[in-house]
Design a protein around this nucleic acid. Structure first.
Lengths: 155, 155
DNA sequence: GACCAGTGGTTCGAATTTGAACCACGCCAC
DNA sequence: GTGGCGTGGTTCAAATTCGAACCACTGGTC
């Protein structure tokens, strides 16, 4: 017996569209960040997360699950950013094990000068291509999808 | 002056939802394929593309741009699949340079036994979470997005 | 106060990915 | 035919990624 519920045309289109957009967009964004700011996308994410946090600093763990990357991956990227002077590590007062990453002045400067170009690209390639209805559908639909994924993921 | 058109709340939600869904879904799918079939996602993609093609074979180049990966990446994955006996390389009659990848019997078997579980997961994590309206919005919206990305990408 | 399961981060090795350099060949124009 | 340019694939080194093992420490429990 084959009782698999295969995908109909519409569903298939959604899945392949999602996959393709995800690959191609990721690639383009990565490319632009590398060219304009000499940053990888994960690195850019780290910088913006930090810049949005009070005092420009966050615990490693908080960063790690905001970034959706593995712990070791984060360690690596933060080390890179530290080498290039964008970020500094400090130890967390109150728990010797804890480490907080902290934006340096150059880090702040980098974010300020990089963000506009990044936003412009995202707008051009994604946001402005969609109708308002598509935009809200995506915001709500994929929002729900990722909420469930987060919830069901073993921490 | 800062004349950047920043993202409003809705637009931001769409972008972050998209990024998160993309990361988390990719990770989960990857995981499942590895566990159930001992395949990476790119490898699975190769197998299904081949199985959808006449005679189960395609030129390397055709595969490469269907897969949205670099040429060298494809070479690597095909080599892996060849080692595990899912795929065979033949030379392309009519152009000595050309190489066609070709599903073996085990390759066919692998696709048949892996596809149902894969589809079920995609359904559970993505398709069945969305309303029908969201589904069509995503199919059309992201379809258009990726079409443009393909078109504007240097080949 | 000593034990012990659990946390926060780093280190390590293995697998994958990418772009650039490369090689061999086909396709033309002359 | 014979240069010379573009193509189809592979090879190479470098960067990144992941999970598993690890270390140092914390917070209860007895």
């Amino acid at each position: 017996m084959d009782n698999t519920r295969w995908l109909d045309e519409q569903e298939m289109a959604a899945w392949t569209g999602f996959l393709a957009a995800s690959n191609l967009l990721g690639r383009r964004v990565e490319q632009q960040l590398k060219d304009d700011a000499d940053l990888s996308h994960p690195q850019y994410e780290i910088l913006t997360r930090l810049s949005a946090a009070p005092c420009g600093e966050l615990r490693m763990t908080e960063l790690a699950d905001a970034l959706l990357t593995s712990k070791s991956g984060l360690t690596y990227q933060v080390t890179q950013l530290e080498k290039s002077g964008m970020v500094r590590r400090r130890s967390f007062p109150g728990d010797v094990r804890g480490v907080v990453a902290c934006l340096t002045d150059e880090g702040w400067a980098k974010v300020r000068e990089t963000a506009p170009g990044h936003v412009a690209l995202v707008r051009e390639l994604l946001i402005d291509v969609l109708t308002r209805e598509q935009l809200t559908a995506i915001a709500e639909g994929l929002g729900e999808v990722s909420r469930r994924l987060r919830a069901s993921t073993v921490r």
